[in-house]
Amino acid sequence: MDLVYIAHIGVILFTFFMLLNSAAVLVLMERKVAAFLQQRLGPNRTGPWGTLQPVADILKLLFKEELRPLAADRWLFALAPILSVTAAFSAFAVVPWGGTTTLFGLLPEPVPLRVADVNVGILVLFAITSMGIYGIVLAGWSSNSKYSLLGGLRSSAQMISYELSYGLALGAVLLLGNSLSLTDIVNQQSGYWFGVVPRWFIFIQPLGFVIYMIAGIAETNRAPFDFPEAEQELVAGYHTEYSSFRFALFFLAEYVNMVTVSAVATTLFLGGWHGPFLPEWLGWLWWLAKLFALLFFYIWMRWTLPRYRYDQLMHFGWKVLLPVAVINLLLTAAAVLYWG
């Protein structure tokens, strides 16, 4: 076994571990930011500044009773949360989170900081995201409860509708980057215009970025688009009948999906690990900063905007967002053809 090979496996395990941890960090962040926005203190009893709150939450979830409705379909009920979580984790595999490292000269050749560089990376991401819908649909159907079924149906309809705009926003970036590999697209965004403005795609694709973020929030079923779990109407939506560890898996999947959507936005629009002031080998710090800025935006949105109505969501998705995304794609294509 040579050292580089071991380092690759190390990077993969580290990515997985950090992704798992990100959910815990986000739980704390969500509660603290919510408290900040509502002028409360938030969790502050468990550990200093409430930092052990996620640990307490997870332990509480694990010790709860595992319930399954008698009328539920036993196999699919167990399969649904596993599918959700698997899709959420595997989608992150194509996202690079740093340049290359030699670990201060310990390794004979530089090791890239990512799980896999697939030459059709964006399409892989898209394919795995579309698999994630099944987890939610199956959870809704197999619970054999009206709230779950309605939640599952709503969520899948919502995800299918917004996936189109999501894909078209990504398409515009593909045209600019002239590649389907996320690593290539990040490398295109290094350097500066006029020596000051970083060459990030957000500056040539501002509309694309807005479309991407709206569709991304809808894809992850977060407020203001959290209809699948609208508590006034559907109790808790597709995971109404779930408890204990299976519920924790859905919870985990939601947070990991948020991280993936933000990470892809960072990669495609905000220049990935490129940024001013820091040396190249500290690029992952830039990546983390951008990621957490977007995650903060997510939470900020949740506690600021009221939930839409379902027909408004469909109207907005199909009659506003999709046409705007198509026009954006066409304009970008024309511009690339003319200047590129």
């Binding site: 059709v120 399409l123 892989v124 898209f126 394919a127 579309s130 698999m131 819908i133 099944y134 649909v137 899948s156 299918i160």
Partner: peptide
């Protein structure tokens, strides 16, 4: 392969 998953396994089967 990816188109197979997006179009068939993803869209049509949903």
């Amino acid at each position: 392969a990816v188109t197979q998953i997006i179009v068939y396994a993803g869209a049509i089967m949903v």
